[in-house]
Nucleic acid binder design. Structure first.
Lengths: 209, 209
DNA sequence: ACCCTCTTGATACAATCGTTCTAAACAACA
DNA sequence: TGTTGTTTAGAACGATTGTATCAAGAGGGT
């Protein structure tokens, strides 16, 4: 069933308010924003919208309106730095982890899917181009100390003091690190020297200026 | 300067609270969540955190805490459907636009960058694989009726009643639509038959189960 | 000890805000 | 006309919550 005009207006207002100010409007904010005469009218429409699943609220909690059937969730994900070759990099769980992230991204819950210890890295270089990850893309990582063969992972090379993003394959007593780029060669590490830090669970790219 | 232990705890609590419930905690929520004895202590720490730029608040506004120096912004972007070939698709600004989106994504402000009329589409097929856009990826679109040569755009083909995602090049009195896939051929349309609906401004991919 | 800044504590005020209640206007319909 | 369901109004209650105030402890440096 379609939403009535007034209710559509209220939904739009909530969305705009949320985008602009970062928190939800109160009933009385909506009164002002939608030219409605009194709060009970808004209350009435909100009740209907909630029953129909367009919004969710927590009773008695101010500014608790959230949009959209289940889809609402934004997750805060810390952008921890750049991954290429060279720099070390603190990861969640390590001692250095409480360090301040470069910034905090807001990511759709549909990507994070309830996982804990998710962080983001900016990719430098085109070593993963065949996996459709370009220079400048942001990869979302889940903290993990082991991954399945062939998964993309951030690997810490102890003796080189390097962090690198590769596909990981376990072999006899070594590990094969394979770039997803036909122009680059795989290389091998002693099992003890390569430490998996996390697996790639998503990619975000920004196009244009 | 680093954040003290207690303040780090408060920051973590706010982040978790925000992720779990979708709105910010009150001073008294933080009292409970961080085992602090009284609201004035929280108030004190919040004042410091705000002065240092870790959070922002609006005076007198309940639950108005937002995280992160400027980075906070989450934008609501409607996921309007799937793009491949075949289905028509309402776009922002058209009459059908107020129609209910499949869902509402929450996307980092850093991708939307203040643009208006941004929407999202799920990509079907691998016709844009060489542009690093895979089957199942989500593309973020900005509503636009013209694009520069070579930009990726969603194009509406009137007579075929089809929507398609291609690179667009204007030629003499026709338009070349070029897939980003070496195994597919470009094709041409009369200028009047091809209507640009939007340009691609970002890509979001989800990896794993 | 003394001073200084940072931090904790308890309490209270007043504004904000969700909710409820009652009544009426309005529309569709038999 | 009467009936029913939806929407609009106005006002008020009381819980929630940001903030202010005043007091005191904790630690460091001189």
């Amino acid at each position: 069933m379609a939403v009535s005009h007034k209710r559509q207006c209220i939904l739009d207002f909530i969305r705009d308010f949320l985008d602009e100010r970062g928190y939800a409007p109160t009933v009385r904010d909506i009164v002002r924003g939608c030219d409605i005469s009194t709060s009970s009218v808004v209350q009435y429409h909100l009740d209907v919208l909630e029953k129909e699943g367009y919004i969710r609220r927590d009773p008695q909690v101010f500014r608790s309106i959230r949009l959209g059937a289940g889809t609402s969730g934004a997750c805060s994900v810390p952008l921890m730095g750049t991954i290429a070759a060279g720099e070390p990099l603190p990861v969640p769980g390590s001692d250095a982890w409480q360090s301040v992230p470069e910034s905090v991204l807001s990511v759709a819950e549909s990507i994070v899917r309830g996982r804990k210890d998710v962080y983001a890295l900016k990719v430098k270089g085109t070593s993963m181009i065949d996996a459709l990850i370009d220079d400048g893309d942001i990869v979302l990582m889940e903290q993990a100390s082991t991954v399945a063969d062939g998964e993309m992972a951030a690997v810490w090379l102890k003796s080189q003091q390097e962090m690198t993003l590769k596909r990981v394959y376990r072999e006899a007593n070594r590990i094969r690190l394979q770039p997803a780029n036909r122009q680059m060669k795989s290389f091998y590490e002693r099992t003890g020297n390569a430490e998996v830090q996390g697996r790639v669970i998503g990619v975000i790219r920004n196009i244009g200026s």
